[in-house]
Amino acid sequence: MILELKNVCKSFHQPQSGMIEVLNNVNFSLDIGETNAITGQSGSGKTTLLSLIAGLDIPDSGKILLQGEDLCSMKENRLSRYRATKIGIVFQRFHLMPHLSARENISLPLEILKHQHITDRVDDMLAKINLKDRQHHLPGQLSGGECQRVAIARALIIKPALLLADEPTGNLDIKTGKKIARLLFDLVEKENKTLILVTHNLDLADQCQKIRKLDRGRLV
């Protein structure tokens, strides 16, 4: 088991409606190499769940254990290190550094970790996503699909224990979306990575081994 969520609860305060319970006693676990889709309506708590697993936020109660380590007990710096070494995130809007080339964007997490063999790993990754010829282009000079390929490569370059993807095809047309999805699943399979995919897209969710549905903060 790589990830385990125990009784995770999260609520937010909203000025007009008071406390809103976004996640209510969420429990689930994942094994290595497992691909999971989390679906649900808007406001069901999908993104909140993803942010908690990514260590970008902390639950009100419950535990999130990644490879046996409890995220909730980690301090800010430790969480940063956790994200840098164990988590890869793919965003819907790519979120690439606009002033860095495709190659530099991919190598950035390794540079943050002060990794030794950056060049070889980046070359390898560029080949895997088939972007070698566009490696020196800035994000502004790339298409949406190419940007998302760079984002996936950036997420996978650190060989994360867990890959999180938030609507990875949401900003792309259907054809490009399909290509990106294939690339994502191929890479996950090849690298034997555990994937949590948050999406509305049922076709995309169907490609995962398991589909979990969130409804008003509860897994159903």
Partner: peptide, 13 residues
């Protein structure tokens, strides 16, 4: 936003 991206990929505050 870029700072947030950097933090999301593991940069310390």
């Amino acid at each position: 936003q870029e700072m947030a991206i950097l933090m999301s990929i593991g940069a310390r505050p």
